[in-house]
Design a protein around this nucleic acid. Structure first.
Lengths: 339, 339
DNA sequence: CTGTTAGCGCATTCAC
DNA sequence: GTGAATGCGCTAACAG
């Protein structure tokens, strides 16, 4: 079908080997004169090297895989952009999979990437709290065959990657809020089986406890905007029933959940922060356009992606880097002046 | 390095061909008994088919390429998610490239995808207004070799894809605003060399003209949040100098630009919509969390991506589908009651 | 139904 | 510095 290197070699009147050496950097350098002929022939015929054939012959694809939960979620799309940046001009191509919360599909994707012989796989969804046998086994196999497994979030014992200090960052967030004067707290905690939301909630409430403050309520919901919306709705309904009032500060374990929660609050005609103070986590780019500005813990998302990309390039996939977030106190968590 | 099919065949005590037939759907079905042995051997050895070798032998990769300008932009990430959805369980893998506004890089990416022998390439950035020789030639070559070139936005003469009726939709938007009572308009028009922003601005102003209304000002800026911010800043500075006041409705050719513009307006302490009414285009998911709610033309972004993905599956890449947006009048374009 | 064999397109030893 | 030959891992005729 397409033009092969053989065709180019024939057209140029040289051997296959020579054509190969010209069109790809080989150790041996053919004469300039002959190089030109080959290049012209390739140009004329519209030759494109067959990456599959090259991969087979060199036993090295220049492919890596990135697995995210939802590419339309700003958290993941920021990371994805960072990865692309990190890859830069390396010529490495990125295989993307947006697998949703479907764990089985995630495993299938890893298998697919292994089949593609990707040089590295970057996993960016949240891990289950209890170790995942299948996943670990798969990645171990992958690494045994020379693949780099890089995790963003909570690296496994056997993988390197970027570890996000969810626990410590959430604690800092708690401290900052107490310093602001908040004393009443609730947590919108996300799926209790996932490590990330779990650690964030835990870090937050532990810190409060050490300060002598008890979290009044912990609600669980899906780790998504929808989940935040529903959980907050439940919270508000219960609050109404109790005819309770007075500002309370609700820590949402992700910005995306916080936005859903914000929506639920507004829908009921309540005010942020006067009635409910809101705090998120991640500092997704979307936040800049939200009013009131949402307090959160800033994670350098794009930078995290970039680091992962660079780890691929430098073959330092086994390295572990820890990244912490920094509290950003904005409008949504201002202390109500009078009660 | 890795386990080969040959290894599996040996382990199972069958021939290479039989192993191949068992592990991949072939027309000929080996006996159940022997199939089992092969599968067990594969499992035991941890065999993963080498996709490159398969591609070479079958001359069919199950790969497609998606090119966007910026994967972190909600417009593109929504489309990307749609494409993934459209691909569904097909087992086709997605190669993603986020090329920025770098035209040369876009061409390079297409070449890379051609080398990868992707079955299809979905182009989703905006085209230049004047035909791009190189791009067309490249895609023509690609199609001649059996590739599907699918464009989202403004398909070229030689490609199919999803055409967005920017012109007509912008006109509808203009009508809706006039119907609301607006009479004073400005356009925040984006890069004049790109087809998409150009068509939107043109469609909008043409419709107004036919209604007997002249656009007071047209500003150009980059087709991005930053561009929207800067252009609006200039607009407001000029307006201040002229000591002008009174509501004017500014049509931003994309939501992302509108958000940048909104930021600039707020920064100066002006109000939306009382001082400046804002209208965007696309209806990116981000908008739901912005107050006031931003008027726009709703494009079914995810659906558009899904359609593109399905076109790949059904090999109908040459088909042309036209999608129109529908005006969504929300808070940001309310008419100021008194002036 | 199963095994043998010949490529798929290219990189790379090895001779010249 | 250049060409001929071998093999990367697998599929798909072709025989048996």
């Amino acid at each position: 079908m397409a033009i092969r290197l053989t065709d180019v070699a024939n057209e140029a009147g040289v051997s296959l080997a020579t054509a190969s050496r010209v069109l790809n950097g080989s150790a041996r350098k053919p004469a300039e004169e002959i190089s030109l002929k080959v290049r012209q022939a390739a140009e004329k015929l519209g030759y494109f090297p067959n990456a599959q054939a090259q991969a087979l012959a060199r036993s090295s694809t220049k492919l890596i895989g990135l697995i995210v939960r939802d590419i339309a979620d700003p958290y993941f799309s920021s990371i994805a952009r960072g990865v692309q940046r990190g890859l830069g001009e390396s010529g490495i191509q990125l295989l993307l999979a947006s697998v949703g919360s479907d764990h089985e599909r995630e495993l299938e994707t890893i298998r697919a990437f292994m089949s593609q012989r990707t040089d590295a796989i970057i996993l960016s969804g949240s891990r289950l709290l209890e170790g995942d046998q299948q996943l670990e086994q798969l990645l171990e196999n992958y690494q045994a065959n020379g693949g780099q497994a890089i995790m963003i979030g909570q690296p496994l014992a056997l993988t390197g990657g970027i570890q996000i200090d969810n626990d410590g960052t959430a604690a800092d967030l708690a401290s900052a809020l107490v310093r602001l004067g908040h004393r009443r707290f609730a947590i919108l905690a996300g799926d209790p089986e996932l490590a990330t939301p779990r650690h964030r909630a835990q870090g937050f409430s532990d810190k409060l406890e050490r300060t002598g403050i008890a979290v009044e309520q912990t609600l669980h919901g899906a780790f998504s905007r929808e989940g935040g919306y529903l959980a907050m709705s439940d919270f508000l309904t219960a609050r109404e029933k109790r005819k309770e009032s007075g500002q309370i500060c609700v820590f949402c374990v992700s910005d995306v959940m916080a936005l859903g929660a914000l929506h639920a609050i507004r829908e009921r005609g309540l005010r942020v922060p006067e009635d409910i103070a809101i705090v998120g986590f991640d500092d997704i780019p979307t936040l800049v356009d939200v009013t009131p500005s949402v307090s959160t813990a800033r994670l350098p998302l794009e930078e995290i992606g970039r680091m992962a990309g660079e780890m691929v390039l430098s073959h330092s996939g086994a390295k572990l880097v820890v990244v912490s977030g920094v509290p950003m106190m904005r409008g949504s968590s201002e202390l109500a002046t009078a009660d």
